[in-house]
């Protein structure tokens, strides 16, 4: 299944933005960071979530499937590359279809930009910039065996659920050992939220967890 890849452990992320800065140093997209760092519980906790391209395996790269210009190449090693600048027409299909919210778009340049797993480095056996600079190991690059040798008792999942659809990816997330039988929830809201504190929400929604969003 997984060879050498990135493992993301949001539990270790301290939101320092080192990965964001490191990503800018990547030769294949110098000066532009492709990593997203979000704060899902902003104001209540310091929880932070780094997001890189998950390199979807099944279905293979929805971003590439919805691209009308055949611009997104998937190399034999499973890496989903950024759009070929020769072909990309800047339509944003990939940006809005990606279930993980990964690709960015430069509308003036008519060009999509996304994490390519630092292909200039990983194709030479080096770790991506984000994993190289992460001070807490929230982004770990290696094999599952190497991860488990360093962190006994952890397990990983590359199986995500969006409503009724399940997606397996090339990049995995660290999960508790007893949490591998079920897919990792993708966050797609399911239940309509009618009111918050007695006020009409105007059609906003709640997550699978039932929490207010």
């Amino acid at each position: 299944m997984m060879g050498r890849t990135l493992f993301i452990d949001p539990g270790r992320c301290i939101g320092c933005q080192a990965c964001v800065s490191g990503c800018r140093e990547c030769d294949s997209h110098r000066g532009k960071s492709m990593i997203h760092l979000d704060y899902p519980d902003e104001g209540s906790s310091v929880a932070s979530l780094p997001t890189v391209c998950m390199h979807c395996e099944d279905p293979v790269a929805p971003c590439a499937e919805v691209c009308p210009a055949e611009a997104i190449l998937i190399s034999p090693d499973g890496v989903v590359h950024e759009a070929d600048p020769t072909r990309c027409i800047g339509c944003s299909n990939c940006v809005n279809a990606c279930p993980f919210g990964v690709p960015k778009i430069d509308l003036a340049a008519k060009l999509q930009l996304k994490c390519n797993l630092c292909y200039d480095r990983t194709s030479l056996g080096l770790a991506p910039m984000c994993a190289t600079v992460c001070p807490t190991g929230a982004l770990f690059y290696g094999t599952l065996e190497e991860l488990q040798a360093e962190r006994p008792g952890v397990d990983v999942s590359n199986w995500f659920e969006f409503g009724d659809v399940q997606i397996t990816t090339g990049v995995a997330m660290v999960v508790p050992a007893d949490r591998t039988r079920d897919p990792v929830p993708g966050g797609l809201p399911t239940l309509p939220l009618v009111q918050v504190n007695g006020r009409d929400t105007g059609g906003r929604v709640v997550s699978d967890a039932g929490g207010q969003l």
């Binding site: 949001p10 929880a47 979530l49 997001t51 929830p185 797609l188 997550s207 967890a209």
Partner: peptide, 9 residues
């Protein structure tokens, strides 16, 4: 999408 996935996680 990312924030909702983070919340669900």
């Amino acid at each position: 999408k990312r924030v909702l996935r983070g919340s669900a996680y």
